[in-house]
Amino acid sequence: MAAVRSFSRLLTRSSLNNIAKRGYADEMNFTFAAGNQVFYNGVSVRQVDVPSFSGAFGILPKHVPTLAVLKPGVVTVIENEGGSKKYFVSSGTVTINDDSSVQVLAEEACPVDNLDISAARDVLSKAQSQLSSATTDVARAEGQIAVEVGEALVKACE
């Protein structure tokens, strides 16, 4: 019973109002950018699927507010017209705000259609060499990160 009372104290009038406001909507305000390019800037989309270290997940309108770290992989954006676009991201963050707006900020990103499988395999090969020749903890960590990105690049191309 004490746990119920403690929980009920956490539910303030404003948090109850926010919960009550959440409902189904067909679209959400979406921003997706990287250091090299802005892909979407405050446009309305239906769904976004992102790779995260806590597991890949889909974002629909009225998603619960969330902050997540992107892992190397493919972000898929399903536009209102029903078409989808895929982008490779090396890393970054995903923010889902209380107003259901979504921001994906990537360290680096490019359309999957622009990737070259042979170049991706070359990146992976060099990263594996870097990892195998690493002699310090820092070099091993950097090599492991490079391998993860290389593996995700190759997978995105296939």
Results as ranks from 00 to 15, higher is better:
residue 63 H to C: 08
residue 65 P to T: 02
residue 139 A to H: 02
residue 93 T to V: 05
residue 115 L to I: 05
residue 109 A to P: 10
residue 64 V to T: 15
residue 71 K to C: 09
residue 21 K to C: 03
residue 128 Q to T: 00
residue 44 S to K: 15
residue 4 V to W: 11
residue 4 V to H: 07
residue 76 T to E: 15
residue 95 T to P: 00
residue 105 L to S: 13
residue 33 A to F: 09
residue 16 L to S: 12
residue 47 Q to V: 00
residue 137 D to A: 04
residue 133 S to A: 07
residue 105 L to E: 09
residue 127 A to Q: 01
residue 35 G to V: 04
residue 107 E to F: 09
residue 96 I to E: 01
residue 41 N to C: 00
residue 85 K to V: 04
residue 67 L to F: 13
residue 139 A to K: 02
residue 39 F to L: 00
residue 72 P to S: 14
residue 79 E to M: 14
residue 26 D to Q: 06
residue 38 V to H: 07
residue 29 N to Y: 06
residue 96 I to G: 00
residue 109 A to I: 11
residue 102 V to W: 03
residue 98 D to H: 03
residue 54 S to Q: 09
residue 137 D to G: 09
residue 23 G to T: 05
residue 62 K to G: 07
residue 36 N to Y: 03
residue 105 L to R: 07
residue 104 V to T: 12
residue 69 V to L: 10
residue 55 G to K: 13
residue 118 S to F: 05
residue 101 S to Q: 04
residue 75 V to W: 07
residue 18 N to W: 11
residue 138 V to T: 10
residue 3 A to Y: 12
residue 89 V to W: 05
residue 49 D to Q: 06
residue 6 S to N: 13
residue 39 F to P: 02
residue 118 S to G: 02
residue 112 V to N: 09
residue 68 A to E: 15
residue 11 L to K: 11
residue 88 F to V: 08
residue 116 D to Q: 07
residue 94 V to E: 06
residue 30 F to E: 04
residue 138 V to K: 10
residue 87 Y to K: 09
residue 37 Q to S: 04
residue 83 G to D: 12
residue 55 G to A: 13
residue 16 L to G: 08
residue 92 G to N: 03
residue 93 T to P: 04
residue 97 N to C: 07
residue 110 C to W: 10
residue 74 V to E: 14
residue 35 G to D: 01
residue 67 L to Q: 08
residue 13 R to W: 04
residue 72 P to D: 05
residue 45 V to I: 11
residue 104 V to R: 11
residue 44 S to R: 11
residue 53 F to S: 05
residue 81 E to V: 08
residue 75 V to F: 11
residue 44 S to C: 00
residue 49 D to V: 11
residue 30 F to A: 11
residue 5 R to S: 10
residue 44 S to Y: 04
residue 40 Y to C: 01
residue 90 S to P: 00
residue 68 A to Q: 15
residue 96 I to F: 03
residue 99 D to G: 01
